[in-house]
Write a protein that binds this DNA or RNA. Structure first.
Length: 324
DNA sequence: AAATTAAGCAACCGCTCCACC
DNA sequence: CGGTGGAGCGGTTGCTTAATT
């Protein structure tokens, strides 16, 4: 026996909402609120809709201050950075973009942003490979070609561009407005609630701040124990890891200047960096977790990420590395 | 002009989480 | 502590519209 359905499936209307239905729902919620019970709401209004459907319609369309239309470059960047940091946690990503809904962002990512980035990466990789092959042919013709010089066949592991400087946004910018979601997310991902991360970063110590962000990010990744790549059967989820690396790679090539921070990242040490930011005693607070999802400086070098993931992998599944 | 294909988006489905009893 | 049910989330579907043949 399965679970009882949330509504009478035979008697509820499906499909697009009519303007009348929208008006009914909106005017009721405007006057009375949701009452904390979406299931009961359609009956109260006299709508032949499932409560879940009402909730979705309200959240994605009728709610005030919903922004429709084109995404800005800044929004693109935020989405990309957050996707790399936390994956497809659309609700958390949406929390960083006022007026955008998780559904909207999800659709935008799946239908446009992903293609945009992939297209750019493929194009660049293709031209790099062409020029590499040309050089190879020239060397072969002149008899100076060495087999070790052959072009990289793997589209997902190309050489990295040089890091270039990029200005940071200020620490005051409201990237994060849902700390509890993030906290939940960390716990969900297997992270400890006692993260050993620098959280309080004095505004007078900007250089330390830059270091802190990167070491903090890596600390958090480490605290997660790489658990996001371990599936329910405690097997390493190569597909998940590959996906993250591929996307990271896409971002790196679509926006090379974002590699900025790499040097200070190395300086700060990859993990367990005690010199960056504040002491671990301060780190139990979740008051300022902004650096975790701070978009522009968050995108680390993909080789470093690869390294970290492999380390995590070796820690979680020592046999995995041996088998490679 | 009609048929076909692709893209975009709204909505649904099924699952997990979590508060409450 | 376990069961229950509503809320919320992410993946997927399918309809509509635009572009192409």
């Amino acid at each position: 026996m399965g679970r009882a359905p949330c509504c009478d499936k035979a008697n509820v209307k499906k499909g697009p909402w009519s303007p009348e239905e929208d008006a009914k729902l909106k005017s009721y919620i405007d006057q009375h609120g949701t009452g904390g019970n979406w299931i009961a709401l359609p009956q109260k209004i006299g709508l032949r809709r499932c409560g879940k459907s009402c909730r979705l319609r309200w959240l994605n369309y009728l709610r005030p201050n919903i922004k429709h239309g084109e995404f800005s470059d800044e929004e693109d960047n935020i989405i990309c950075s957050l996707y790399i940091s936390i994956g497809s946690r659309w609700s958390i990503i949406a929390a960083q973009l006022p007026g955008r809904t998780d559904n909207d962002i999800k659709n935008y990512w799946n239908t446009r942003l992903k293609k945009k980035l992939l297209g750019k990466q493929r194009k660049e990789h293709h031209s790099r490979r062409l020029s590499c092959l040309k050089q190879q042919e020239t060397k072969k013709a002149s008899g100076t070609f060495l087999p070790s010089e052959s072009c990289n066949e793997n589209p997902y592991w190309p050489e990295l561009p040089m890091a270039t400087p990029l200005s940071h946004p200020t620490h005051q910018e409201p990237w994060v407005n849902d700390h509890s979601s993030l906290r939940k997310l960390f716990i969900k991902l297997g992270g400890s609630t006692n993260l050993q991360c620098p959280l309080e970063i004095p505004s007078t110590q900007q250089p330390i701040y830059e270091n802190s962000i990167n070491s903090y990010t890596m600390n958090c990744l480490t605290n997660m124990g790489g658990s996001q790549f371990i599936n329910q059967n405690t097997q390493f989820d190569m597909a998940a890891a590959n996906r993250s690396l591929t996307v990271l790679d896409e971002i790196v090539y679509s926006n090379p200047q974002r590699l900025e921070g790499l040097e200070c990242f190395y300086d700060a040490g990859m993990v367990n960096d005690s010199s960056a930011g504040s002491s671990s005693a301060e780190s139990t607070s979740w008051g300022d977790i902004s650096s975790l999802v701070y978009p522009p400086v968050l995108v680390p070098d993909f080789e470093v990420c690869q390294q970290v993931m492999l380390q995590e992998c070796a820690f979680e599944q020592p046999s995995y590395l041996e088998s490679q």
